[in-house]
Amino acid sequence: MRFDIITLFPEMFSAIKEEGVIARAIKKSIISINEWQLRDFSENKYKNVDDKAYGGGAGMVMQVKPIRDCIKKIKEQEPETKVIYLSPQGDPLNQNLVEKLSSFESLTLLCGRYEGVDERIIKNDVDLEVSIGDYVISGGELAAMVLIDSVSRRLPNVLGNKDSLNDSFVNNLLDYPHYTRPESIDGDIVPEVLLSGNQAKIDAWRLEQAKHKTRQKRPDLLSN
């Protein structure tokens, strides 16, 4: 799977490209991440890609032409890429959307800054707006990293153990409790069923615990 990132801060993505699951996926050639410096598509000597907002306001707005030219360049290489704008106004990034996005071969992630991008980009050039939560961060780069990580985990052979895919939000349930050695800490003992060696009983216990946690902490998931 190919990720193309349109950003003013391409250096930020070294954090996920050089460590952990994403780094291993790149090394295995399962995914690729290509950063595009938006200023390279500016046509003025100062490399500006933003301007004042019509109607006034405190912040600057990212201009149409540099973004559109960058998308055009990416589509010369990946004509079928889906363009996603990371935005607090977008569809929530939940597990269902992650599953959908993981089915595409190419995603182009547009990272906004300042007051965001000119609305004409959203109307004419973006396939989907995606939000990682009901809060505001300084730019789309961190949101893009979250999306890349969550989507990449769903791709075949990215995770070493396929059971790792059975995590929170799969089947609209939170994850079950996990325990490791030692068996007892200050009198707090690992549940006996996990020591039984009976996998059917362990699986049943884990499912019940996942349901209990979901009812207790995220009952909204059970209504979906």
Rank of each mutant, 00 (worst) to 15 (best):
I5D: 00
I5K: 03
I6P: 03
L8M: 14
F9G: 04
E11D: 15
M12K: 04
F13Y: 14
F13D: 05
A15R: 03
I16W: 00
I16H: 04
K17Y: 01
E19K: 09
V21T: 07
A23I: 01
A23R: 14
A23S: 15
A25M: 08
A25G: 10
I30M: 12
I31P: 06
E35A: 06
W36H: 15
W36P: 04
W36G: 03
Q37M: 09
Q37Y: 14
L38N: 04
D40G: 01
S42Y: 01
S42E: 07
N44L: 10
K45I: 05
K45T: 12
N48Y: 08
N48W: 02
N48R: 13
V49Y: 00
D50E: 11
D51C: 10
K52H: 12
A53Q: 13
Y54N: 06
G56A: 10
G56W: 14
G57P: 07
G57V: 06
G59E: 07
V61S: 02
V61E: 02
M62F: 02
M62Y: 03
Q63A: 02
V64F: 05
K65D: 13
R68I: 00
R68E: 12
D69N: 13
D69V: 03
I71G: 01
K72V: 08
K75D: 03
E76T: 10
Q77V: 14
E78M: 07
E78K: 09
P79Y: 14
E80I: 05
E80R: 12
V83K: 03
V83Y: 06
I84A: 03
Y85D: 04
L86T: 08
P88H: 04
Q89D: 09
G90S: 15
G90H: 13
D91W: 08
P92Y: 15
P92S: 15
N94G: 15
Q95K: 13
N96L: 14
V98I: 15
E99T: 08
E99N: 10
L101A: 11
L101W: 05
S103K: 13
F104A: 00
E105C: 06
S106N: 14
L107Q: 00
T108N: 00
L110K: 05
G112Q: 05
R113C: 06
R113I: 08
Y114D: 02
E115M: 06
G116F: 12
G116N: 02
D118C: 05
I122E: 08
K123L: 15
D127V: 11
D127A: 08
L128H: 00
L128R: 04
S131I: 01
I132G: 07
G133P: 09
V136W: 09
V136H: 11
I137Q: 03
G140P: 05
G140I: 01
A143G: 12
M145L: 05
M145V: 06
